[in-house]
Simulated scan of single mutants.
Amino acid sequence: MRRSLLFGMGAVLCVTGFATPAAAIEQPDPTVQVAPSGQPESPKGFERIELTTRTTSHYNDSGPEGPSAGDEVLSTGVLLKDGRPVGVFGNECSFLDADDQSQTLQCVESWSLGDKGELTSQALTEQTATSGPRSWTAVINGGTGRFLGAEGFIVTRKDTPNAGTDSVTIYLKRG
């Protein structure tokens, strides 16, 4: 079971689309209410932006073989809204600790939404070393353009461990 070590929201933004040899099990995000349709509702006071990704990832194994402290996952890709490109993203997740039961990663990422501006986010996550669907939440550190002074969080959902796409929901605090 994934436990949040940052922000108390299920944190992790090992971001979008990283393909790791062992994936985490999805954990519900206590800050996001789910409607009867199964789709998340925006928490009160937040604007919601729904995107998907087309992702390319690279796993750097620093040895010993398999996930271990010092390994990295680098990901980049295109952000899509209704199937149309609206920006790009990139992230880097470093394994701080890993064994056959769990993995602890520190992730930082940047989200560029074209002329609207950029967002940065980060997360610390502990996840199980078992394959399966997963989701994670990262805190927004700030932004530029429309996102100058941004506060909020980003939830990324992956249905399969090595999928080249993710669902990304950005929750921006209004006001």
Score class of each variant (00 low, 15 high):
66 G>C: 09
71 D>A: 03
45 G>N: 03
108 V>R: 14
12 V>P: 06
118 E>H: 11
6 L>P: 00
121 S>K: 08
162 N>S: 15
102 S>G: 04
116 K>L: 14
107 C>E: 03
86 V>N: 14
141 N>T: 14
66 G>M: 10
36 P>D: 09
142 G>N: 02
161 P>I: 03
100 D>N: 12
137 T>K: 05
125 T>R: 14
88 V>M: 12
91 N>C: 13
71 D>P: 03
170 I>D: 00
109 E>Q: 14
42 S>Q: 05
103 Q>G: 04
50 E>N: 09
93 C>G: 15
112 S>F: 07
97 D>C: 05
124 L>P: 00
164 G>E: 13
62 S>A: 08
164 G>F: 06
102 S>M: 10
118 E>S: 15
3 R>V: 10
131 S>A: 13
29 D>P: 01
134 R>H: 10
89 F>K: 00
127 Q>C: 10
63 G>I: 01
89 F>L: 05
162 N>M: 14
2 R>K: 09
11 A>D: 11
102 S>F: 14
14 C>H: 04
2 R>H: 08
135 S>I: 03
32 V>W: 01
17 G>M: 07
110 S>W: 09
109 E>P: 00
41 E>V: 09
169 T>M: 15
109 E>S: 13
19 A>L: 13
161 P>H: 09
38 G>M: 07
152 G>R: 09
26 E>N: 13
130 T>V: 11
169 T>G: 02
171 Y>I: 04
172 L>G: 06
99 D>H: 04
35 A>K: 10
118 E>W: 05
172 L>D: 02
83 G>Q: 07
66 G>I: 05
153 F>H: 08
110 S>F: 08
36 P>K: 02
82 D>F: 07
136 W>E: 13
105 L>W: 09
142 G>R: 05
150 A>S: 08
20 T>V: 10
149 G>W: 00
102 S>L: 09
144 T>G: 10
106 Q>D: 13
140 I>K: 03
4 S>Y: 00
45 G>H: 01
66 G>D: 07
46 F>I: 06
76 T>Q: 12
7 F>I: 01
48 R>H: 03
24 A>D: 12
153 F>L: 06
175 G>T: 10
77 G>T: 02
7 F>N: 02
163 A>F: 02
39 Q>F: 06
48 R>D: 03
154 I>H: 04
39 Q>T: 08
156 T>A: 09
89 F>S: 01
55 T>Y: 03
108 V>M: 04
111 W>N: 02
120 T>A: 13
13 L>G: 14
106 Q>M: 13
102 S>C: 02
41 E>P: 01
145 G>R: 06
99 D>M: 00
42 S>K: 04
24 A>V: 04
20 T>C: 13
59 Y>L: 10
61 D>L: 05
90 G>Q: 08
39 Q>S: 10
69 A>K: 12
14 C>W: 01
16 T>M: 15
43 P>W: 04
155 V>M: 08
30 P>K: 06
139 V>F: 06
28 P>F: 12
24 A>S: 15
85 P>M: 05
23 A>M: 10
39 Q>A: 12
92 E>W: 00
149 G>H: 00
91 N>M: 12
8 G>F: 08
